[in-house]
Design a protein around this nucleic acid. Structure first.
Lengths: 372, 372
DNA sequence: AGCTCTGTTGTTAGCGCTACCGGCAGCGCT
DNA sequence: AGCGCTGCCGGTAGCGCTAACAACAGAGCT
């Protein structure tokens, strides 16, 4: 009922204007129609200005910085805004001011709720300063990251938050050319692009190995999606392998999910692979709680004693982990803190003030529960 | 290392240009500095045009519709684009063309993965047609919807997807004034704003009651978050209440989570409330799988026999539901289909072609599993 | 009175892009 | 030859907004 044909609404006013001008113009001249383009249907700043009896500039000031205008004028303009139903056109604002008040967020996957906390905290913190967030996902395909980034840059964001520290040369080149402030998160790097809020995935995985060894496990297998576009899983694998060699002096035992999605189904598949390839395992470390949860429930269903026969551990400390029976041992990562700190650093950088400590290690915590 | 001071780069070129103009201009005139504003740091269309030896218009054509330009010219321009590292400024494009190639998506919550499937399918389908998606969340606060919508409209989206059919008058007024194509989803309404792809939450809940009655349950309690900003939960409650009265002839028995978040913890709280207020219940229907999953695991932990003593049912058919032990009876909703159909209808509307069937009922399916 | 200073408002010239038109070849037709 | 037609390309005038300045009134000072 609302719809109608929006473009149809424009014709009339323009036609009338054109007619009036034609009458005034010299007849010997070609008609020289003002060939107005499809004028926008919406209320503009100058409409509001006309309604309030002030200049467009004053309206603009009221919209952007109400305190810069005396109370009476402001009230007057605000009334006009309400009366006309004015909604500022941000595209025009961005173009004129060369600021978009917009920050892009690049995550591998949005429903994989590890990052959801980070994104939520980040966007809440930035919203308080008038920034809007737009989120893009790479679907765990690093080569996709470059495409998404390119289309992001078309929006001229004032800043970027990215999950991961591992980027293609193309991505780094784009970032360098754009000169946009960037926070990398959820990883650690000796050569960050700009700002960094994260932790060492390798150290976290090594700590988990330490925990399992402490609990008496000796044949620990790593199961994850580490060869197909999840650099964080690969880093965890590295940490695992190093720790196993150091603490147990044995060769690492791993199982890979390939390009399978991060789902509980894949977790079951991984468990099957472990039982097939490394049937003597006494513990399995998964690269994600999602995998571990799928595997854990499969064990319960099949009567495999957890942790008696097999200890299981995940990564991420999703809410699910502590609700499962048995509850799941995992690595807790401060996702919300990452988002908050990331916002803080990015705000400083966007403001142009020097950033005190541009690289922050938020750490991790091994959460020992019943599954180990 | 990337950062530097972007604004510092501009001064030189502009200064030189100003000098040249001053020499040409009449000396009696005041200097009339061209007072260039903080020129953008980035490569523009005309930079590319100069590099390729064509007009800006031709470059624009190559970017927007490569087939409208002969092969040779196109290759030439594309080489110039690559050489200069040009990234189109979408704000300028939007402003000039009055099209943003952008679609806004409004969901209550993004990590509540029911909607994740819909959003993912929707954004994939629209990306294929050159549209970008931006997502906003209302955090299950309907009054928040209006704010989010207002800031969305500032971006002048070509279309909108909203979860829910229940909107404040303010929201409806904004939508009407903007004249933007809209798809409402995940509900059903006799008076939709524009397009509609959904199903009846009430009918789905009633069907679940039917299933539980069929399995011999007589004292079914509804537990959810239906009074605090989740209209879909409220609709489900309605359907439940009607069905209970019809099929069992008893009064509905409900328990409400109030404004608590949709988490498994809240599910446990709801279970406690049920056991306290309606201790003779032989079945509990939750308004979400998340609640049901929390309650189910709590039952397992406490030794409450499911479904022997108490049958449990959820809503949404998350992946988790079929992995739990016992597996969870729930209502499956075709989230992905909703996203795909929504994209299809919206594309037609945005294209301006008449939409055949603007309201689509995608239905639902009761999935009977072990928990009932 | 003359001056500076501050607060408030208006004017102007773009931001980078695209719609709209016009011009010019080259082609096939009468 | 003259006509229209199509394909290709460029010039021009904005889209709606804001940065940068300008103008002016009134206050406070010398």
């Amino acid at each position: 009922m609302t719809q109608g044909a929006p473009s149809a609404r424009t014709g009339r006013a323009d036609g009338a204007a054109a007619g009036a001008m034609d009458i005034v113009s010299d007849v010997t001249q070609p008609p020289r129609r003002p060939r107005k383009r499809s004028a926008t249907r919406s209320v503009t700043l100058s409409d509001v200005a006309a309604a309030a009896g002030v200049s467009a500039q004053t309206v603009s000031r009221v919209v952007r910085d109400p305190r810069s205008v005396p109370d009476e004028t402001r009230a007057n303009v605000e009334a006009a805004i309400a009366a006309t139903g004015y909604v500022p056109n941000l595209a025009a604002s961005n173009l004129a001011s060369n600021r978009s008040r917009t920050v892009g967020v690049l995550v591998p996957q949005i429903n994989a709720s590890v990052f959801a906390d980070t994104v939520h905290a980040f966007s809440t913190a930035l919203a308080a300063h008038g920034y809007q967030i737009f989120v893009g996902t790479t679907d765990y395909r690093p080569e996709h990251e470059e495409d998404v980034l390119r289309s992001f840059l078309g929006r001229r964001p004032d800043g970027l938050l990215m999950v991961g520290t591992d980027h293609t040369p193309g991505t780094r080149a784009l970032l360098a050319a754009a000169g946009v402030p960037v926070v990398e998160t959820w990883g650690w790097s000796d050569d960050p692009v700009d700002l960094l809020v994260g932790f060492s995935n390798a150290a976290a995985a090594a700590a988990m190995v330490g925990h399992l060894v402490e609990r008496g496990r000796r044949r620990i297998t790593f199961a994850g999606r580490h060869t197909s576009g999840d650099p964080r899983a690969a880093e965890r694998l590295d940490g695992y392998a190093t720790a196993v060699r150091e603490l147990l002096g044995t060769a690492p035992r791993t199982v890979d999910a390939g390009p399978e999605p991060v789902t509980m189904d894949t977790g079951v598949t991984l468990l099957d692979l472990v039982l097939e390839r490394h049937p003597d395992s006494d513990a399995v470390m998964f690269s994600s709680d999602v995998f571990a949860a799928g595997a854990l429930q499969a064990c319960v269903r099949r009567g495999i004693d957890v942790p008696g026969t097999l200890a299981l551990a995940g990564f991420g400390d999703f809410e699910l982990a502590r609700h499962l029976v048995p509850s799941l041992t995992t690595v807790a990562v401060p996702g919300t803190l990452i988002g908050e700190l990331g916002a803080e650093l990015l705000l400083e950088r966007m403001r142009g003030t020097p950033v005190g400590v541009p690289h922050r290690d938020v750490g991790y915590r091994v959460v020992a529960r019943a599954s180990s």
